[in-house]
């Protein structure tokens, strides 16, 4: 019973998610000034596609979608949160506090430049530093788990600086 409920819920995210992906596939996150960044990303999210039943639900979905889609990026061999990263995390903290019953997994990822085990450790540092920031912003630690994937799950497999920049990330998955 419970499982079915989750499946339906997951479908509700995935379907509009796919549409979103198709409509705004490009636009790499550029680690520039924090303010312009957040404004930019807010503009980037198009209005949520109308859901079959009610508009309120679809707005929630799009907020969740945005939460999951927006990664926090890092410099090479670093787990330090720059101004851009902190701005994104503040938004996430606000959302998480408003949705107090939602549990999050923070995934730490690395680019392919670096050796396997070291990158698993570095990915963990990234996930932990994002989590620590959220805890400091008032999100209960018990609602968050971390996992590192090292360099095993690149977002963009290309061997370019912009692909590497995208791959060095903390990614957020809502449960």
């Amino acid at each position: 019973m419970k499982r079915r409920y989750w499946v339906i819920l997951a479908m509700l995210f995935i379907v509009p998610g796919l549409m979103l992906t198709a409509s705004c596939a490009k636009k790499a996150v550029k680690p520039e000034a924090a303010v312009s960044k957040t404004d930019d990303s807010a503009k980037k999210v198009p209005p949520a596609p109308p859901a079959p039943d009610d508009a309120g639900k679809s707005a929630t979905l799009s907020a969740r979608e945005k939460f999951m889609k927006q990664d926090v990026n890092f410099a090479f061999d670093s787990a330090v949160l720059d101004a851009t990263a902190q701005a994104i995390l503040k938004d996430k903290a606000d959302w998480l506090k408003k949705n107090a019953d939602t549990a999050t997994t923070v995934e730490g990822h690395c680019d392919e430049r670096g050796t396997v085990a070291y990158n698993v450790a570095l990915g963990e540092r990234r996930a932990e530093s994002a989590k620590a920031f959220l805890v400091n912003m008032g999100v209960p630690a018990a609602k968050m788990t971390t996992i590192s994937y090292g360099k095993e799950k690149p977002l963009d497999p290309a061997k370019t600086e912009s692909a590497y920049a995208k791959n060095r990330r903390a990614h957020f998955v809502l449960k």
Binding site: T115, A117, Y118, A121, L122, R125
Partner: peptide, 10 residues
């Protein structure tokens, strides 16, 4: 075997 903040691996 090690005791330092930050990464110790391999």
């Amino acid at each position: 075997l090690t005791d330092s903040p930050g990464i110790d691996v391999s």
